[in-house]
Design a protein around this nucleic acid. Sequence first.
RNA 1: GGGCGCGUAGCUCAGCGGGAGAGCACCACGUUGACAUCGUGGGGGUCGCUGGUUCAAUCCCAGCCGCGCCCACCA
Length: 890
Amino acid sequence: MLDKTYSPQSVEARISERWDQSGAFEAEASDNKAPFAVMMPPPNVTGSLHMGHALNMTLQDVLTRYRRMSGRNALWQPGTDHAGIATQMVVERQLREEGTDRASLGREKFVDRVWQWKAESGGTIVKQLQRLGASPDWRRERFTLDEGLSEAVRTVFVRLYHEGLIYRDKRLVNWDCQLLTAISDLEVDQRETKGHLWHFKYPLEGAEEGAPNSFITVATTRPETMLGDTAVAVHPDDERYAHLIGRHVLLPLVGRRIPIVGDTYSDPEKGSGAVKITPAHDFNDFEVGRRHGLEAINILDKHGQLNDAVPEPYRGLDRFEARKRVVVDLEALGLLEKIEDQVHAVPYGDRSNTVIEPWLTDQWYVDAAVLAKPAIEAVEEGRIRFVPKNWENTYFEWMRNIQPWCISRQLWWGHQIPAWYGPDGHIFVAMDEAEAVKLAEDHYGEPTKITRDPDVLDTWFSSGLWPFSTLGWPEQTPELKTFYPGDVLITGFDIIFFWVARMIMMGLHFMDDVPFRDVYIHALVRDEKGQKMSKSKGNVIDPLELMDAYGTDALRFTLVAMAAQGRDIKLSEQRVAGYRNFVTKLWNAARFCQMNECAYAAGFDPAGCAMTANRWIISACAEAVRDAGQALDAYRFNEAANTLYSFVWHTFCDWYLEIAKPALYGDDGADKTETRSAAAWILERTLEALHPLMPFVTEELHESLAKHEHDMLVTTEWPAFDKGLIDTSAKQEMDWIVRLIGEVRSVRSEMNVPPGATVPLQLADANERLCAWFGTHKTTIETLARVDASISAQPSQDADRGDSIQIVLDNATLLLKIADFIDIAEERARLERELSKINGEIAKIDKKLSNPKFLERAPEDVVEEQRERRADADLSRQKLDQAVARLNAL
RNA sequence: GGGCGCGUAGCUCAGCGGGAGAGCACCACGUUGACAUCGUGGGGGUCGCUGGUUCAAUCCCAGCCGCGCCCACCA
């Protein structure tokens, strides 16, 4: 016998173990079932499970389990990402605590150390995913830095290089002065910051000192960069300054003679209308510099301190220190015109949280614009579909304006770039050192020493290959053939650019096909106040804690039920508790079935039930499962969850099991046998349908039930019904019974009839069909409404004496004999209320039906529906009129 | 500056052209042989505002108000 409540803690680990041993998650390329492939977004090895993972992984697991049960050869490809910067930071922090650093360790030892860290701590996230019930093929787990994937990375790099799509260039990059590496545009966070706009006067060459027009004023938010100025730009059409174009200013503090150039970049509306140009430290200025052949003077070293290119007093100063000094010194010279407050965007590194510097260095770039073209077309042509569709706009917007992608990073942890340099700087790109050496020998005509580029690749470069590198590419493996392209990618919108776009570009380029058909973009999980969860805010809800407290299934179900398309999820613990209750409800329904020997019966034919109630519940189950399946097909996760929730709790537990009780408690016989089988059948289908959403409790129940068809739920078929099980007449009949009971209960409650009291109920003045229904379900009505039921052809004398409440249900009247509780005046008021309600409805319908335009233009079935409603309402009104008349006759 | 999204019951949210819904919270009653992590009944909403399209608008369109997010090189 099942316990009274479900204890997830003791069950989940055991069930996990069984799944694992059964090999249920394993997918084979040789399998001839239709493949279904999902690529897991690889979490960082440094990661531990947060709510975003929990949602992302749960949705993937739901789909994978659903498709697997639906007969697909389902591969969910797992793995982790080496996360260059994040991981290197973690290990460097450890080293600091040990009083050392990576420089003193040296590259090789440092990298060894990171691998060691990965071996010890890198598996955390994987274990946590198992706790969540994730069902990927763990045998196939990959790591972006493992042997095979590294080969894929080198292959891609070499090929793109030879195609001219990867190149080396000296230009401005976003430089992180703390991590000492370049980062991509996407890793820069523009933050609105309160700062100042300083207006400086630059003396014009050849102007008379002190004369009114002896200066040109420039404005800047970054005074220290003036030390690297090589021009002042004005708009060619700006009358105030046009005459100055071609003249020079003498750069204060430095003494450099720099030109005044005309460039449309200068905006007469902004600042003073003249803008200082620092090509080496500003992206716009860099372009201006290129147009005018200006020198780019780099004034910063890699730490963000001023270098030898500036006058002696400023050398070695930190950039922020230099800013103050420059202002002070210019003021002393009388060249500070004014200071304004200004809110402006300051670039921060998303990892280091420090101010990013545009810095002039040699880096490797991918010509993203070329790769983007087919990637844009794939989405335009619908070969890839975003769900919800609006994300396509975001994708297009970014892809159509894509910039060269800086892929080199000055880190040690990652894929070292397969490029070597000869003594003269000649570049040799090759799969390995031996090949590079040979290339060099061919090039120079003799063995020549070459050195490898020390940089590593952006982590996203390797994750961009994930959909095919994990399947064995560049080898042409059976896996690749079977599982590429994948079916759906499930991820958050925050990595559409970082990852999704890159996978599409790389997949199309190297596999000549899209990496996946659908991209389902889910929402962000926020706290219950709608704030983004973050460690610094301290509002992080830990999924593991919720799993401990409420069970994994409750958490999963919550996330699925709240995953409506296009809206963020505000998670509250209360909600999880609510779904824990649902798990308990399901558990107890199963327990009830077990107690009453509702067990799988070999010959049971769900289409052949004699009892209406059984036909009805089977029909309702078929509808619910069909709807849930359709919802999952359309990625409407919340709908699937709600449909099943409502069916299990309200239809099955609240109504069916209560209706079934008399038969189950009664004497042996056909009714009891059939009801037992039907209940068991429904329970099994319910467990199957819920399994993708709540794998643990359903598997546990499946195992605990006395007899069943299949060994494990995980490999059972998702219930697929044919239309034959949907029985509209049973539905009509039971709906009426349900409403009847509801009406009686409502009246009893309103009239304060003691819940325990059994009172007479008479169906009066009803047609044959209703009388037949009433008769068939007499026991159900009596049990659930606590009445003694009978049928009378005429309204009874009880009503005429005022001993009964009259309940109008469609075109029948129910008489509830509760004389002791009736207050005639109140009863009259109640009936009048009913009457006015129905009259209101009739008036509304009449308004429509009397509108000739409605009759003329509304579709036929809508008009017909209104007519039927009108007729039904009219019947009810007649009955109510009669009831009132009888009361008035007293 | 551009783009996206959201304003529906006290709270969190579904629905989205033809009869306003769920969960939680709230109120009343209930120890009926699965479940008090429960059952039964109940109260509560001019579906942000203003126009327009339509026979019909919470739903479509426009504008406005409020809120959030993303992108953008502006001194």
